[in-house]
Design a protein around this nucleic acid. Structure first.
Length: 899
RNA sequence: GGGCGCAUAGCUCAGUUGGUCAGAGCGCAGCCUUCACACGGCUGAGGCCACAGGUUCGAGUCCUGUUGCGCCCA
């Protein structure tokens, strides 16, 4: 807990106070000074033991700025500031996530363009001003498109940086990175090449979840299920008998013996490769091993058994198509079924050559006729048409039965995902599961229960991590393929560059051993056209920010990092993938602690979203209420807990900041009264009331420190704030007269005055530092009133109990019977009496009698003089009370005297 | 269907290992133009701690179940 590194001492000087302190303008003033002074600069010479490194989320800059950013980034910032004040060198970089689909989409909409890689030359980007919403997008070349992406992300990043500076984040802006920068590309490609070499990355042609609009593969982590209306179609499959019997030569009879199945995707009937039932299902056991014919198409398919077939669902026997859903993929793989690809990458039904090998049919001509009605249609349209055809031919039993069922979508997509076969790059995560679970248990989670989300995800992994995307604005795979004599790529023997050559763009650069003119020629080479999934890059943020391989000295000091702050909805993506990469590359955790923030909900407890129109622009809030006010609200949200957006709570924070200004002005004014150069130190605090106040403050320091050590910023704030208000409402009022040391005071006593002033100075110093992580602007402002110009409160040491006078440290926990608590109680009684009589607080009290137990009266005794002043009590007496009687204060107001 | 979390004053939430734990703030009502603060201050009313059992001398606090809400996964 003691400072690990020496730090410039920050001696207090005689305060210089402003006439009328205000919050307005503090953000501009101090963010400029901090930048000039390098207040938050990371000292890269600090030894590793002194470093506290934070792996800050790089926000998606193409997304919108919203209060959620303000919320969660403030949480991390309070911890960063606490650690810095504890003497640790805080490595607090920030990045912008600018690569990938979100940016592409924003660029498409913003400029009205679409990327067409087949265009090799164009005249550059179209004039943005000429764009009309109704006009079709202008096709542009890939280089032009990428240039537009860079241009727009640069603008967006400026807006984010302005917001985060305004928010007072104590990041080191010299360590900013972006996920599309050369540094990030190099790190991503290097890590990929190493995975490739170690066998943890591989490419294969496999059924892949595919978004037909974005024309790209989608990973398990990007899936989302949405309820969609559908319908069960009950179809008759004519029985053909055992597989070893010769097939009939004529089309099956729709009215003959048949087995009935139910399906929500009849349009995939032509891709049916089997029927599947549960192995223990007595109804269908006899059929296993027999053949049936697909309706309309007359394709003989076997009946097979597999435990995933649900006897409760539909008729208890299902058709397997290549591919209707992920279960089909499992059946296809585990039962070694053939492939009949139907859905193309554009989402339309492609030609099906019935009668040719792989498409054998009992009635090729009829099959062709039927399929001609479907070919080229999208699944929804084909579904309607085939239902009609099936009904006409007598294969449809009854009417389709409408249902609502969950359908898989790409989380950003608008149409259901299809499953197509394509070549993709994967990282082997499945064999890693056990190891990843162990890592998850090593990691310290705040709050702890968030670990369950990670475990559930790891345990539920069903496929390796697909990291390739068929997009444009991303990190290219640093891979080429040799072309054989027919110009076909050899995917099994990829060509890779040496690490020193990174970053590379295989669509521009030439692989080692080849000449540029060999590109695309037989015997030459071709570049891998894909880019990496965004998560494949952002899973390396600790490495990218920490200078992995580029800056080994820095990396050795900051990695593994200490804290990953993030929101809970990206545990399965960002957190998970970062753990995977650190494990594979470094055999370690990427960080020791993870702090999960909740969401910001609107006042109706719904997640804030643009579509609901309930999004508040954060900049407006910060300008209207002040940064410290908004940060106060954010810091009030407990770790991991969803929190309602609440402007009233921000106003409370604003009141707190204003109170800090005014209370400071009072306390420091009294300190200044002490005279020229001799500011009294802690040893000058002698008065029991002052010592009692400091003793309570010591308890607050203890609790706030413990809370911060547990990453519970909200508790630290709550304890500090509660004490601060009591300090202002009661203690300041009680010592006011004594601190002024006015000659008119009932009991002028220079040493008692000096004690009050010293206590005010010490308490204020500690309180300001306790509040500094939450309200960095107002606390810095007040700090500057009585500290040298180059001394920032944000580099001042976190309060320690050793700062308190010994007598305050030794004061026992007073449990409501301490001098301050008793004095507050008496003061409250006096106030109540005046309020009941509708008198001003200044109106005099003729007589007040405190009745309490003797020990309590003894503790109260030193505060009686202060109470007389604070309550304007002419005569204040105490009377001992026998045990068992209720303590009380009898207050008798003075007669109103007409002026 | 499985998992996790939450249910405490009108609202937002504290209540850390069971024994002054029935609290805070906001809002509301009333009062006070006090020399740090009217971007104030003081005072006050308000709750069978979701429901039903159980453990215990004693339970918002532990256990079981129920209900409602939210999220994650299938």
């Amino acid at each position: 807990m003691s400072p690990l590194r020496p730090r410039p001492d920050q001696p207090a000087r005689r305060p210089v106070l402003p006439e009328r302190p205000a919050l307005e303008g503090l953000e501009e003033k101090w963010s400029v000074r901090w930048e000039q002074a390098g207040t938050y600069h990371f000292d890269r010479t600090a030894p590793r033991e002194a470093v506290f490194a934070i792996d800050t989320p790089p926000p998606t800059v193409s997304g919108s700025l919203h209060v959620g950013h303000v919320f969660s980034y403030t949480h991390a910032d309070t911890i960063a500031r606490y650690q810095r004040m504890q003497g640790r060198e805080v490595f607090y970089p920030i990045g912008w996530d600018d690569n990938g689909l979100p940016t592409e989409r924003r660029v498409q909409n913003y400029f009205g363009v679409r990327c067409d890689p087949s265009i090799t030359e164009d005249s550059g980007p179209p004039d943005r001003a000429g764009r009309r919403g109704s006009e079709p997008p202008v096709p542009v070349s890939r280089p032009t498109f990428v240039a537009l992406c860079h241009q727009l992300t640069a603008e967006d990043e400026g807006a984010f940086e302005a917001l985060f500076r305004r928010l007072g984040l104590s990041v080191d802006w010299r360590h900013t990175y972006t996920t599309i920068s050369d540094r990030a590309v190099r790190a991503s490609q290097r890590a990929f090449l190493r995975l490739l070499r170690s066998g943890h990355a591989y490419s294969t042609e496999a059924p892949t979840l595919w978004d037909v609009d974005f024309q790209t593969a989608v990973s398990q982590a990007e899936l989302e299920e949405r309820p969609l209306p559908g319908a069960y179609h009950r179809l008759r499959f004519p029985l053909l008998g055992p597989a070893d019997r010769p097939l009939p030569l004529s089309p099956p009879d729709p009215a003959g013996p048949a087995v009935e199945i139910e399906t929500t995707r009849p349009e995939l009937l032509a891709a049916c490769v089997a029927l599947v039932c549960h192995p223990d299902d007595p109804r269908y056991q006899p059929l296993v091993g027999q053949l049936v014919a697909t309706p309309l198409f007359g394709v003989p398919v076997p009946v097979v058994a597999h435990p995933l077939a649900d006897p409760e669902k539909g008729s208890g026997i299902a058709m397997v198509c290549t591919f209707g859903d992920t279960t089909d993929v499992v059946w296809w793989r585990e039962l070694a079924l053939p492939t009949r690809t139907l859905v193309g990458r554009d989402g339309r039904l492609q030609p099906a050559p019935f009668g040719s090998p792989g498409w054998e049919s009992l009635d090729p001509a009829g099959a062709q006729r039927a399929y001609a009605e479907l070919q080229g249609r999208r699944p929804e349209a084909a579904r309607r048409r085939i239902a009609e055809l099936l009904a006409e031919a007598g294969y449809l039993v009854g009417e389709p039965r409408p249902i609502t069922h969950p359908v898989k979508f790409y989380e950003r997509g608008e149409r259901p995902l299809e499953i197509v076969s394509s070549r993709q790059w994967y990282v082997r995560t499945l064999p890693l599961r056990q190891r990843l679970l162990e890592r998850g248990r090593e990691l310290r989670w705040h709050p702890p229960h968030m670990r369950h989300r990670y475990e559930a995800w790891v345990e539920g992994l069903s496929s390796d991590w697909n990291i390739s995307r068929q997009r444009f604005f991303g990190v290219p795979f640093p891979v080429w393929y040799p072309l054989d004599d027919e110009g076909q790529p050899d995917h099994d023997h990829p060509l890779v560059p040496p690490e020193e050559a990174l970053p590379v763009d295989p669509s521009v650069d030439t692989p080692p051993g080849y000449r540029p003119e060999q590109r695309g020629r037989p015997g030459g080479f071709v570049g891998d056209p894909d880019v990496m999934d965004t998560w494949a890059t952002s899973s390396l943020t600790p490495q990218i920010a920490g200078g992995w391989e580029d800056d080994p000295e820095l990396f050795g000091r900051v990695f593994p990092m200490h804290l990953r702050p993030q929101a809970h909805e990206i545990i399965r993506t960002w957190l998970f993938s970062t753990v995977v990469r650190a494990e594979l590359e470094h055999r370690s955790l990427p960080w020791s602690d993870v702090a999960i923030s909740g969401w910001v909900l609107d006042p109706d407890r719904k997640k804030m979203s643009k579509s609901k129109g309930n999004v508040v622009t954060p900049l407006d809030l910060l300008e209207r209420l002040g940064t410290d006010a908004v940060r106060y609200w954010a810091a009030s949200g407990r770790p991991g807990v969803d929190t309602a957006f609440d402007e009233a709570q921000m106003k409370v924070g604003r009141r707190l900041a204003i109170k800090v200004l005014n209370a400071s002005r009072f306390a420091l004014g009294r300190l200044a009264d002490e005279g020229a150069e001799t500011l009294p130190g802690p040893e000058a605090v002698r008065h029991p009331l002052d010592l009692a106040m400091l003793a309570e403050l010591g308890e607050v320091v203890r609790e706030a420190t413990a809370a911060f050590e547990a990453f519970d910023y909200a508790r630290a704030l709550e304890r500090t704030e509660a004490f601060f208000w009591r300090f202002c409402d009661d203690y300041l009022e009680l010592v006011k007269a004594r601190a002024y040391g006015e000659p008119g005071a009932t009991t002028p006593d220079p040493e008692a005055s000096r004690s009050a002033r010293a206590a005010l100075g010490l308490a204020l110093s500690i309180l300001l530092r306790l509040l500094a992580p939450f309200q960095p602007f107002v606390t810095e402002e007040v700090w500057s009133w009585w500290h040298d110009q180059d001394a920032s409160i944000h580099r001042a040491p976190w309060p320690r109990l050793e700062e308190l006078p010994v007598a305050a440290r030794e004061a026992s926990a007073a449990d409501g019977q301490g001098t301050l608590a008793l004095a507050s109680w008496v003061l409250g009684a006096i106030r109540r009496a005046k309020t009941d009589a509708r008198r001003s607080m200044r109106s005099p009290v003729a007589q007040a009698v405190v009745r309490h137990r003797p020990e309590a009266l003894a503790a109260l005794d030193p505060a009686l003089a202060d109470l007389r002043e604070a309550g304007a009590v002419l005569e204040l007496r105490t009377e001992a009370l026998p045990d068992g009687q209720e303590p009380a204060v009898a207050v008798e107001l003075a007669e109103l005297s007409e002026p």
